[in-house]
Amino acid sequence: MNEALSRKKDEEISDYLLEQFLNLSRALTGFDRVDLLGTGMAEPYYREITRIYKEPVIRLLFEAKAIFEVYGEHHPAFEDQIRQRIIEDIEFAQIAKNIIQLWYLGSYTNYNDPAPLIFKAAYIISPEAYQNGLLWPNMGSHPAGAKQPGFGSWNLEPQTVKQD
């Protein structure tokens, strides 16, 4: 009975945190909720980032939640708050950059590595993660080797970058 109850609680908590993760991801990536959910990768990315960084991820999510609650995302200071309290924060910076990287490229990089090693310090977490990278459609293209646009499409004028 107790065990079943606690499991239910865990699920609730994880849904709740996943929602916070999506909110933070929107602020970090510039993509909206539908774009992010459309990749089908929200849960695997959340799982991966908590696997790597553990508790600090939860602290980061609550820090972001506080910024959302106090400022709201349309407040002029919202972006600065994200920058100062997350992007430039010693503890949160590399978690945040990796959250962006997961959504953009499906990969993880050790940003503490002194050399800017593009590939040696990075790994792609799964074939699906690579194929759902958002960097590619953002430039009017598609991941190399996947989501092919069809014969002759490369001859046509590129789709302009859509950003609302």
Partner: peptide, 9 residues
């Protein structure tokens, strides 16, 4: 990060 990153890339 955010929309600036999208625009820049």
């Amino acid at each position: 990060f955010g929309k600036k990153l999208r625009g820049y890339l």
